[in-house]
């Protein structure tokens, strides 16, 4: 059998990279530095993805939230009257921002990771020496980025419709970040177990949206009769929305420490579950 000829468009440099590229096994990089670079690469990729497809990732939630502002401001807000000393639009705005933050953090990770699974290019990451931690945190930061960017844009748009005093700015930012972290981890878990596109829409449609709508975005939980008020306290989103509202308006239906406790619990729980699944290869390894 004769040795085959190369096609004419190859060897544009005339160099075989295997003769010039040093193997990474010959280089003295610490595992920690490699893990950091792997993590940073994943973050870079995820942020690039969000920005590249901005008409899908950034624009729709901003438009949707603007519609909420129009409806709950000039159209309905004045007729509803005041809520806990604020106009109705002022009252619902923190919840609307938080709704945008958490749903977009969740959806960014679930769609990105499931997309990678669906196209099988998740294998690029799985065959590499990247640790499970770097993978999870890299995706999560992508989700946090999208959630916070949308939260910021929605917040700026909200200023066109309502005055937002932002009573506790640091706490406001902390709640937004922690919430987006929690829901990014949640999205990651959803993407790992998802087998088809239906599976990635079930949780947002049947769990996330109802919990958000019933999570005190549009009303104070104190207005509810029993047992609905007590039942509402089982809704974790209620704590996040109220903590965020406390940061912006200085009003909350529950103690802030409890809200932070719930947030921390969810972050730790989702993180541990996601790490366990990733190490076991659930949904990604046969």
């Amino acid at each position: 059998m004769t040795k085959p000829e190369a096609t004419e468009d190859r060897n544009q440099t005339g160099r075989n990279p295997m003769q010039t590229l040093r193997s990474i096994s010959d280089e003295q990089r610490s595992r920690l530095s490699e893990a950091w670079v792997g993590f940073a690469t994943t973050v870079r990729r995820e942020i690039h993805r969000v920005l590249r497809i901005w008409p899908q990732t950034l624009l729709p939630p901003v438009i949707t939230t603007c519609l909420y502002f129009i409806i709950f401001g000039p159209v309905l807000g004045d007729r509803i009257g005041q809520m806990q000393g604020y106009t109705y639009l002022q009252y619902v705005t923190p919840g609307l921002i938080m709704m945008a933050v958490l749903t977009n953090s969740y959806q960014n990770v679930v769609s990105s990771f499931f997309g990678a699974k669906f196209q099988h290019h998740i294998e690029e990451v799985l065959v590499s020496p990247m640790s499970s931690q770097s993978i999870l945190l890299g995706y999560a930061v992508g989700g946090v980025f999208r959630g916070l960017v949308i939260g910021a844009v929605v917040g700026l748009v909200a200023l066109l419709f309502a005055d937002l005093p932002v009573v506790h700015p640091v706490l406001t930012i902390a709640v937004a970040v922690l919430t987006s972290v929690a829901f990014s981890f949640g999205g990651f878990i959803n993407a790992m177990v998802a087998r088809n596109f239906d599976d990635i829409s079930i949780v947002p449609t049947f769990v996330l949206t109802p919990l958000t709508m019933l999570g005190g975005v549009f009303y104070s939980v104190t207005l509810l009769a029993e047992p609905w008020q007590t039942l509402s306290y089982a809704n974790p989103i209620l704590y996040m929305v109220n903590a965020f509202r406390y940061g912006i308006l200085g009003r909350s239906d529950m103690p802030i420490a409890v809200a932070f406790g719930v947030l921390t619990l969810f972050i730790v729980g989702f993180y541990m579950a996601a790490m366990w699944m990733l190490r076991r290869g659930i949904g990604i390894r046969s």
Partner: peptide
């Protein structure tokens, strides 16, 4: 980007 990202997953700076 695909190839550079793969290098990044192996710890090679961008």
């Amino acid at each position: 980007r695909i190839v550079a990202q793969q290098a990044g997953y192996y710890g090679i700076p961008w």
